[in-house]
Measured scan of single mutants.
Amino acid sequence: LSDEDFKAVFGMTRSAFANLPLWKQQNLKKEKGLF
């Protein structure tokens, strides 16, 4: 994903996403069907 796409899908920047706990990152990915 480009940075723009990433922001559109997750509603946050990559750095904000990277600061989330791993389980939360994985839950978000599953919610968005990216897993």
Rank of each mutant, 00 (worst) to 15 (best):
F10M: 14
F17K: 00
F10C: 03
E31V: 08
F6Q: 00
A18G: 11
K30V: 09
K29W: 06
T13C: 07
D5K: 11
M12E: 03
K32R: 11
D3V: 07
V9N: 14
K29L: 10
S15I: 10
Q25E: 01
L20A: 03
Q26E: 15
S15L: 10
S2P: 01
W23V: 12
L28K: 01
K29M: 10
F6N: 00
L34N: 13
L22T: 14
L20G: 01
L28T: 02
K24D: 13
R14D: 03
F17E: 02
A16R: 06
P21C: 00
K32F: 03
F6L: 03
F10N: 03
T13E: 15
L20W: 00
F10D: 06
Q26W: 06
N27G: 10
N19H: 10
F6G: 01
L1P: 13
L28S: 01
S15A: 05
P21Q: 02
A16E: 14
R14G: 04
K30L: 06
E31Y: 02
P21V: 00
R14K: 07
V9A: 13
L1V: 08
S15P: 09
Q26K: 08
N19F: 14
N27M: 13
L34S: 11
F35E: 15
D3F: 00
G33K: 10
N19E: 10
N27P: 00
A8Y: 03
D5V: 02
G33T: 12
T13D: 14
A16S: 08
L34R: 08
F17M: 05
K7Y: 03
M12V: 04
K7A: 09
K30I: 11
A8W: 03
M12K: 03
K32L: 05
Q25C: 02
E4W: 14
E4G: 03
W23Y: 15
F35S: 15
P21W: 00
N27T: 08
W23I: 04
K30G: 07
R14Y: 02
F35A: 11
K30S: 06
V9K: 15
A8V: 07
N19G: 12
T13Q: 13
E31A: 10
K29T: 04
S2Y: 02
L28M: 07
P21G: 03
L22F: 06
F35P: 15
P21M: 00
V9P: 01
D5N: 14
S2D: 04
L22R: 11
E4N: 09
P21S: 05
V9H: 09
D5L: 05
L1G: 08
S15T: 09
R14A: 06
V9Y: 07
G11S: 04
G11C: 08
K29V: 07
K30D: 09
G11W: 00
A16F: 05
F6E: 01
F35G: 12
A8C: 03
N27S: 13
A8N: 12
L1W: 06
W23R: 12
T13S: 14
G33R: 09
V9R: 11
N19D: 11
F10W: 06
A16G: 08
R14H: 15
L20D: 01
L22A: 14
L1T: 02
L22P: 14
L28W: 04
L28C: 06
T13L: 02
A16M: 11
N19W: 03
K32N: 06
L20R: 00
S15M: 11
W23D: 13
L28Q: 02
N27C: 11
K30T: 09
L1R: 04
K7E: 11
K24R: 11
P21F: 00
K24E: 12
R14Q: 08
P21D: 02
K32D: 03
F35D: 13
E31Q: 11
Q26V: 13
F17R: 01
W23C: 11
G11N: 06
K24C: 07
F17G: 03
E4L: 15
A16V: 08
E31C: 04
S15R: 06
M12F: 11
K29P: 08
S2I: 10
A8D: 06
F35V: 15
K7D: 03
M12A: 01
V9W: 04
G11F: 04
R14L: 03
D3M: 12
F10H: 01
A16C: 10
D5F: 07
F6W: 09
F17W: 04
K30H: 08
R14W: 02
L20I: 05
A18D: 12
A18I: 04
M12I: 10
A8T: 11
R14S: 05
K29D: 09
K7V: 09
L20C: 02
F10Q: 01
F17D: 02
T13V: 05
L22M: 12
K32Q: 08
A8P: 02
L22G: 13
E31L: 05
E4P: 12
W23G: 11
A18W: 03
